[in-house]
Write a protein that binds this DNA or RNA. Structure first.
Length: 571
RNA sequence: UCCCCGGUCGUCCAACGGCAGGACAACAGACUUUGAAUCUGUGAAUCGUGGUUCGAAUCCACGCCGGGGAUCCA
């Protein structure tokens, strides 16, 4: 076998990228004392999705790639209005699930509110910040626009003493929301609008999920982020491309505050995937408007969603590595993710048999009451998985789709008169087709078996092309199966500024009840993954426990070249 | 009209002045008790125009195309 077991295999050769190269060069040059400290900085205002996995993998991965490297988890919780502990908990769970560990280095930007405040005082004392009492509209007007420079605030010339006094009183809660802001004194003429006297603090008398009502003022992202990095002695602050324009400001704050550590910001392109949306706003909308059952709906691109769907974390990591890190903004085919999911599950998931849409088959020359116990391996190419016994009896179920009354060409499954193999069991030949007299629907097949083919191999060695999955009717376990398809019909649901909900795929979920699966699955536990042979990979949904029945989620289907050919022939 | 970042097979990534290569997808075949997996093979790209150079995907200029940037969000 070319590929070995994923548990023992070397990780695929490490693909380099410009950030890894930069860090290597920095370490070689002894920059930042030769240390590597990164951080993953989620805002706790939403659930993590597959796009975040790129950043998590990068930040934790780079830290792990260098001796002594560390990666902090830091919640960027400077805007209490949207943030919540619910998200903090979920985010931690998702990162752990991906396999990363921040040790005891779980931080919050809000842990630094006092230090940040002190930095702000220092900037005022250096006459690099001032309290502006302009209204929101006035400040917006002062900022100018892309084509016109800004104008200085009339309060820009306040004395240091007055600024200090005002800012302290802002902190003390003496003023109403919006009465004043603290602004950095930079350059209203700058072509980079971020440098036009950006706001550092605003008054917001709202409850913070960690600091409670202690602070009536909250720092803005640009001020808080770089300084938080500096406080943590982060060396490499990796973020997405939309912050490129903020880098001069990031550096300005560090310089102005004369921080000891001088972290460097480097930007990379965030992940885009076709047939899905990856914006917090849209994901939140899907949840709130009940287009999906929740954040962990298996159709969601959230980490909890794909976890429930059955995607193994190592597949996601491999996907991240394969996609790489660049500054180009690109759209990755969801098929690549599915490839890695299949790849991981092919090696890691035991096989089982289950019939989604049962068609009854009576084996007429199989004695009533006889049960054959047949040995079937849990994995065709890995004996370490062991095997189980499959009971074979006179009545079995096969997949409805595996029978064609008028077979297509190159069809080698069941059809009147055709001989097929029941996997690991025996050869059967279809002798009769029984239909519902009213509807004409095929309701039962009558077959005969070759008793000398027990186990699936005919005594005379004749070739039988078709092999079908099946279950013994009297031994089968009933299950509900949820078939998932892509959530959106369009490659880019958000294209053209139109309503992304318009491209929601109405067939993204199909629930099948009355499915029949082999008895060994009766003991399957929530989260267990398996391949249902010839159909796809599945995992046991957490609803199984409460529903009192087996509920399986289809993680991803098997590649199906027959379906592809059939589709081509019909079109 | 301003600033910033990008443009390499259908898609994603590599090639760091010296044979444009890999992965996914596609296609053809081998093997097969999963029409899976595996194996073999095929087709498929440097945005354009100039310039520098013995030699340019790579450096320079101009153009074109795409993305981002004006919140008391991050």
């Amino acid at each position: 076998m070319a590929k070995s077991d994923p548990n023992t295999a070397e990780p695929a050769e490490v693909r380099s990228h410009f950030i890894r190269e930069k860090i290597e060069a920095d370490v070689r040059a002894g920059k930042h004392g030769g240390r590597v400290v990164t951080r993953f900085p989620p805002e706790p205002n939403g659930y993590l999705h597959i796009g975040h996995a790129t950043s998590i993998n990068l930040n934790f991965g780079m830290a792990a790639a260098f001796p002594g490297g560390i990666c902090n988890l830091r919640f960027d919780d400077t805007n209490p209005e949207a943030e919540d502990v619910e998200y903090v908990d979920a985010i931690q769970q998702d990162i752990r699930w991906l396999g990363f560990d921040w040790g005891d280095r779980r931080y919050f930007a809000s842990d630094y509110f006092q230090q940040l405040f002190d930095f702000a005082i220092r900037l005022i004392e250096k006459d690099l910040a001032f309290v502006d009492s302009s209204s929101l509209e006035e400040i917006r007007k002062q900022r100018g626009n892309f084509y016109e420079p800004g104008t200085e605030s009339p309060h820009r010339g306040r004395s240091i003493g007055e600024n200090l006094d005002l800012f302290r009183r802002m902190r003390a809660g003496e003023f109403a929301d919006g009465a004043h802001v603290l602004r950095a004194k930079i350059d209203m003429q700058s072509p980079d609008l971020n440098l036009r006297d950006p706001i550092m603090y605003r008054i917001r008398k709202v409850h913070h999920h960690r600091t409670g009502d202690e602070w009536p003022i909250y720092p803005m992202y640009d001020f808080a982020h770089g300084l938080s990095d500096a406080i943590e002695s982060v060396t490499h602050s990796l973020c997405s491309l939309e912050f490129v324009d903020h880098r001069p400001l990031y550096d300005w704050y560090l310089e102005a505050c004369e921080t000891e550590a001088r972290p460097e910001q480097t930007e990379f392109a965030r992940l885009n995937l076709n047939y899905t949306v990856l914006s917090k706003r849209r994901l939140l909308q899907l949840v709130e408007e009940r287009h999906v059952s929740g954040w962990d709906d298996p159709r969601m691109p959230t980490l909890c969603g794909i976890r429930r769907r059955g995607y193994p974390p190592e597949a996601i990591l491999q996907f991240c590595d394969e996609v790489g890190i660049t500054k180009r903004d690109s759209v990755v085919d969801i098929g690549l993710l599915e490839h890695f999911v299949r790849d991981a599950l092919n090696f890691g998931a035991p096989r089982a048999m289950g019939v989604l849409r049962p068609l009854k088959v009576v084996i007429e020359n199989f004695p009533e009451g006889r049960v054959e116990e047949l040995d079937a391996p849990f994995h065709p190419n890995d004996p370490s998985f062991g095997s189980r016994k499959l009971p074979l009896s006179r009545v079995v179920y096969v997949e409805r789709d595996d029978f064609m009354e008028e077979p297509a060409k190159k069809w080698f499954r069941l059809a009147p008169g055709s001989e097929v193999r029941l996997r690991y069991a025996c050869l059967i030949t279809c002798t009769d087709v029984i239909k519902d007299p009213k509807s004409g629907e095929v309701v039962e097949l009558r077959c005969t078996w070759d008793p000398d083919s027990l186990g699936g191999a005919p005594a005379d060695g004749r070739k039988v092309r078709g092999t079908l999955h099946w279950v013994s009717a009297e031994h089968a376990v009933e299950a509900e199966v949820r078939l998932y398809d892509r959530l959106f019909k369009e490659e880019n649901p958000s294209a053209g500024g139109g309503d992304f909900l318009a491209s929601l795929n109405p067939d993204s979920l199909e629930v099948l009840s009355g499915c029949q699966v082999e008895p060994s699955l009766a003991s399957a536990q929530s989260g267990d993954r398996m391949q249902l042979e010839r159909i796809g990979y599945f995992c046991v949904d957490r609803a199984s426990a409460s529903a009192g029945k087996l509920v399986l989620n289809r993680t991803v289907g098997l590649r199906d070249t027959w379906a592809k050919e059939a589709k081509r022939a019909s079109s």
